[in-house]
């Protein structure tokens, strides 16, 4: 039976030195996979997603003591993960601009090469279409389509209004449909 996760209780446990480690292991057990997949869909590359997931949880460990509970624990963790992933992505892009190949082209090639990707033809096409989207639209699409999040939750994580998120999702779906029709 899956153990229920009471985030308020976990935070209290984390603030006690004697139970801090136990609380962190629970957080890790509960969020590690979700954070990894969230980051993986942003970065595509497995090794990069691994690095960013590790950094995210190290930041959680270092900063949870000062977490003011203005938001839910999981939106706070996902905000850290999203920011870490986007800054990582921007660093990668800036380091590859000297070459003629754009970073997204490299990622597309890695998808085709099948390094840690076993999706069928449709899934491959969908991922290729996602690589062409602006970061914001890609994020919103992933969080809605794959992670099935509510707009209100995405709003808390990305700090964007629900209206703007709906517009981003709508544009993303349109662009993906066009890409799938043409390819």
């Amino acid at each position: 039976m899956a153990e229920l996760f009471n985030e308020h209780e976990i935070i209290l446990l984390f603030r006690e030195e004697s139970t801090k480690q136990k609380a962190f292991v629970k957080i890790l057990d509960f969020y590690q996979k979700r954070v990894y997949w969230h980051v993986r869909r942003i970065l595509v590359n497995h090794d990069d997603a691994d690095d960013v997931t590790q950094n995210t949880f190290i930041k959680v460990w270092e900063n949870l003591q000062n977490f003011r509970q203005d938001s839910k624990l999981y939106t706070w963790i996902f905000r850290i993960a999203t920011n870490e992933a986007l800054s990582f992505l921007n660093k990668k892009r800036s380091s590859t601009t000297s070459s003629l190949q754009e970073y997204e082209t490299i990622l597309n090639e890695s998808l085709i090469a099948g390094s840690y990707f076993d999706g069928n033809a449709i899934e491959l096409k969908l991922q290729q279409a996602l690589l062409l989207l602006p970061d914001k639209q890609k994020l919103v699409f992933n969080m809605k389509y794959y992670e099935n999040m509510k707009y209100e939750e995405i709003e808390q994580i990305l700090g964007t209004s629900v209206g703007a998120l709906k517009a981003s999702y709508h544009h993303a779906v349109k662009k993906i449909e066009e890409y799938l029709k043409c390819n």
Partner: peptide, 21 residues
């Protein structure tokens, strides 16, 4: 958390999550 477990074709190495943890 309102999530589903669709991963869109991405794979991970064996025992990846245990090692990463």
């Amino acid at each position: 958390l309102g999530f589903e477990t669709r991963q869109g074709g991405f794979m991970i190495p064996d025992s990846f999550f245990e090692n990463q943890k």
